[in-house]
């Protein structure tokens, strides 16, 4: 019962972070700030969602697979944001200033 409630709470919190990520993608002023939506909000959202699902997991294999998926997404978006930010700087896009 407690496990179930915790799982639901994590799932809902995860969805909330996905929403935050999308709002960030739409509202942030430039490429560099929008990278945060990709790397921070969505990865945390996915992490929480996966934690929520992992609490319901029936086997260790499933748990491992879920964890692997999360780590892979973390790696991919870290690499992606590094590459994009690097290239944007090389092209001379100025970071946003107020």
């Amino acid at each position: 019962m407690i496990l179930n409630l915790a799982s639901i709470a994590l799932l809902l919190a995860g969805a909330l972070f996905f929403l935050a990520g999308t709002v960030g993608l739409l509202r942030f002023p430039d490429v560099y700030t929008r990278l945060h939506a990709l790397t921070k909000a969505d990865n945390l959202g996915l992490g929480m969602l996966i934690a929520g699902l992992a609490l319901q997991a029936e086997s260790w294999v499933l748990l491992g697979k879920l964890l692997l998926i999360w780590l892979l997404v973390l790696t991919a978006s870290a690499a992606a944001s590094h590459l994009v930010a690097n290239q944007a700087l090389a092209r001379g896009i100025m970071p946003w200033r107020r």
């Binding site: 995860g14 990709l38 997404v73 992606a80």
Partner: peptide
Amino acid sequence: RMLAAQLFGTTAVA
């Protein structure tokens, strides 16, 4: 545009 596509990938996984 590319970042948005990348974000879709994460959402699709979820």
